[in-house]
């Protein structure tokens, strides 16, 4: 993220990071830092007023993202990033609200919030970093762990069918759904920017290497080996039917932009319905800059 001219002394990301918290806690060869860079690149492209962008994370390795990014940043309870973001967005619709969290946080404990935010087309951008495992707590099976993957709570291999996140998002009503790997960072950045421009519930899944737990437990080398795997085994297929993008253990990964469609957002629907019923008595919500409701 450049703040004007490139400097010879400072990393351009420093403008967007809380440098007093760097180095971050993520392991060597974890792809989370790279995912944050993709987000920064998207912001560079969007040129939005950074003061009006909020980032909300839940709990887990990805949950720490909010703590490193120098925006109004909120680190909520486990699974609750989406409802927290919903509150922020509805109370001040002028804010751009991004949820940056992990697969376990968003799809397991936060799964109910995810599907309902998609259904009501809440105007949020969800960046879901999927590393196929609960990394922060030591490598337990996740709702995204591929069949057969070894996790600390599936020591004989995972026997539960995982969620296909793009399919879940699409079937619940998300207006924009893309999947990339941490290696595809320019494409990820482009998707994040598109998602943030798109009114409504948008989801960008980033397949991300976890070296310490997923790669190690499954004898896949380290994060670098996984990045090489993505390099060789990602199939870019824009417009692919999300039903066909399941991920099996070490199978080729279909990436691309799968969904880009228009539906009225929650606030659009609210304003439309209230205007129709109440006419003059109703002043459309969130159209003018939001008032300060402090009494």
């Amino acid at each position: 993220m450049s703040n004007g001219k490139p400097s010879e002394e400072h990393h351009p990301m420093e403008a967007l990071l809380r440098m007093d918290r760097i180095p971050h806690i993520w392991c060597s060869t974890c792809g989370l830092g790279t995912s944050v860079s993709a987000f920064a690149l998207a912001l560079e492209d969007l040129q939005y007023d950074l003061d009006k962008i909020c980032i909300v994370s839940g709990i887990g390795c990805t949950g720490r993202v909010a703590g490193y990014v120098k925006l109004d940043s909120f680190h909520a309870t486990h699974g609750r990033a989406i409802p927290f973001a919903t509150g922020l967005k509805l109370a001040n619709p002028q804010l751009k609200v991004v949820v940056f969290s992990g697969d376990g946080d968003l799809i397991a404990i936060g799964g109910n919030h995810f599907i309902h935010a998609a259904r009501r087309n809440m105007d949020l951008t969800v960046i879901c970093v999927n590393n196929f495992i609960y990394a922060m707590t030591g490598g337990q099976v996740a709702p995204t762990s591929p069949l057969g993957a070894s996790c600390s709570t599936t020591p004989y291999g995972n026997y539960e069918r995982p969620f296909n996140i793009p399919h879940l998002a699409e079937s619940c009503g998300a207006v924009y759904v893309a999947r990339w790997t941490a290696l595809h960072l320019r494409r990820t950045a482009k998707s994040i920017a598109e998602a943030m421009r798109k009114p409504g519930f948008s989801v960008v899944e980033i397949i991300c290497p976890c070296s310490t737990l997923y790669a190690r437990r499954n004898r896949l080398g380290d994060g670098l080996e996984l990045m090489k795997f993505y390099h060789e085994n990602s199939i870019i297929k824009h417009g692919a039917d999300p039903r066909d993008v399941d991920i099996d253990f070490q199978s080729p990964i279909v990436v691309g932009k799968f969904v880009d469609r228009d539906r009225p957002t929650f606030i659009d629907g609210y304003n439309r319905a209230m205007t129709a019923k109440l006419g003059e008595k109703f002043e459309p919500y969130g159209v003018a800059p939001a008032e300060v409701h402090d009494g």
């Binding site: 400097s7 971050h24 830092g33 790279t34 860079s37 960072l185």
Partner: peptide
Amino acid sequence: CELLCPEFAIFCTL
């Protein structure tokens, strides 16, 4: 390299 680096430890200038 700058964008891939998970540690924000490398960058390029023109």
